[in-house]
Amino acid sequence: MRALTGRSISKRCMSIKAGAILSRMPVITKELDDFEISYYNYTSELEKRLMWTFPQKFFFRPGSLAERDFEELQTRPAGAEKLVYYPFGRPDVVEGRDRNSKQDIRLPAPSYDPEDKSSMSRPIEPNSRITDADKKNDLKSLERALDKPLYLVVKEKSSSSWVFPTFSINEDSALHTAAEEGLFTTGGPDMNIWTVSNTPALVQKLSEDRVYYIKSHILAGSFKLSRSSDYIDFMWLSSSEIPKHVSSDLWNCVNKILN
């Protein structure tokens, strides 16, 4: 901890440092709760039941081939016959739709060439939400835990404790520039970092010393720890994993501004 040089500060001897909270924002949406899944399912079923009948004549011109193909796929409900007793309710079929239930529409699957990988008609296969990094639990990877924000924590050379990176402030530089430059010297230049603001988000007071944390996001690239820095190791952790590695004092302080 070095004292500041030639600055107009209060007469107490204190060191001011700029801390960096570098986060990777989530790449995918949050995992849905049980309640959310079942609620959305119920409301969508309700909406389908209340939905107007599909205006087939608008989308498929009557008499066209497309209309014929479409009609072949549909299962039209049987209408009500006179003099027939329907124990489970008399069907009320209008324009090929039973008015008492949701409409079952089957869309024709477009034909595609399986050999042609770039065909526009090929079916969409969404990528898995769990990546290799999740399976291997690679704590240095930025592809882990895609639905949560990941925060950079580094291991100090001197105390071997896990902290958020802090950097000293030179003459003529501000907190946010010191934090950003510090990140580049520690992690290499190949990072696309966006500093959210020049205003500090948090102050950590250790007796007379101050660390002002600046929030920033990594948008691309990777953190490659340089050998010359004060830190010997790094990890990308989600906010539930941080308290297991970081000291409880630091966690109680920084906890308030992490999601």
């Binding site: 399912n41 079923e45 309700l46 489970f88 309710g89």
Partner: peptide, 17 residues
């Protein structure tokens, strides 16, 4: 009761609620 059909999904949503 015989001709009534609930909206599917109501039972699960109710349990979760």
């Amino acid at each position: 009761r015989r001709i009534y059909n609930s909206v599917p999904g109501i039972a699960d949503a109710y349990g979760a609620a």
